[in-house]
């Protein structure tokens, strides 16, 4: 029920943007800025690049306002743009890809973490190691599997929506997602549940970024 209401609201806002209503664009930005940035951030694992790509996503949304028709869910359309840009950026930067950005951003995550709770140094080390493992495991996934699993896990998109975002069939998307989780199970399942639980309860929104 909530999803239907959200669909109507977003589509309505976008139609108002089409009519020249500036406030509606600001509202759409407010509603989707966080999820889009986080999706892109987890795709490319670089703060600056993800923000630049997110800017491009919303710029394209604004550019497309005149031709917008609410054929698909707004979120699906939005993540189709975001996925397209992320995959292109990853392909373009394949050669330059290295550990630099990951380590740089990781330092930032550590700082925020420490400020949040002041756990013991040992707890903090365990957590940081685990976070790094998660990020490396996601980074190691093939790009389409990565995009699919991130949209499934953090954005809570349905298989059909992810299929539209990736422009492939629903069965192909399921295959991407199940293979990704299988890989992640073999890489991450050894982590101690207690330590992860501890970190998890601190997160706003727990199950994702929606």
């Amino acid at each position: 029920m909530e999803a239907v209401a959200a669909l109507e609201r977003d589509a309505q806002l976008m139609l108002q943007v089409r009519e020249g209503d500036e406030t509606s664009f600001a509202l759409l930005l407010e509603r989707h800025r966080g999820p889009v940035i986080n999706f892109l951030y987890r795709m490319v694992q670089d703060r600056a690049v993800s923000e630049e790509l997110a800017q491009e996503v919303f710029l394209r949304v604004y550019r497309s306002r005149a031709s917008y028709e609410p054929a698909a869910k707004f979120t699906t359309w939005l993540f189709r743009i975001a996925t397209h840009l992320a995959l292109n950026a990853l392909r373009d930067n394949q050669k330059a890809k290295g550990r630099r950005s990951l380590d740089h951003d990781f330092g930032e995550a550590i700082e925020r973490h420490v400020a949040d709770r002041q756990p013991t140094i040992e707890q903090e080390l365990i957590r940081n190691t685990q976070l790094k493992e998660i990020r490396l495991a996601i980074e190691a996934l093939p790009e389409k599997q990565r995009a699919a699993v991130l949209m499934h896990k953090y954005q809570g998109l349905e298989y059909a929506q992810i299929a539209q975002a990736l422009q492939c069939s629903e069965s192909a998307v399921k295959s991407l997602i199940f293979r990704a989780y299988q890989t992640l199970r073999s890489r991450l399942a050894h982590m101690a549940p207690g330590a992860l639980q501890d970190t998890r309860t601190r997160q706003p929104g727990g199950a994702g970024d929606r």
């Binding site: 930005l29 923000e51 995550a109 992860l196 199950a207 970024d209």
Partner: peptide, 26 residues
């Protein structure tokens, strides 16, 4: 149990905030 551990592990990756000048730049 394995799948739940993965699900929980992924929850441990904290979301990031947009930088303060994001909207103005856009």
């Amino acid at each position: 149990e394995l799948q739940r551990q993965v699900w929980n592990a992924l929850d441990a990756w904290p979301p990031v905030e947009a930088s303060p000048g994001f909207d103005a730049r856009l």
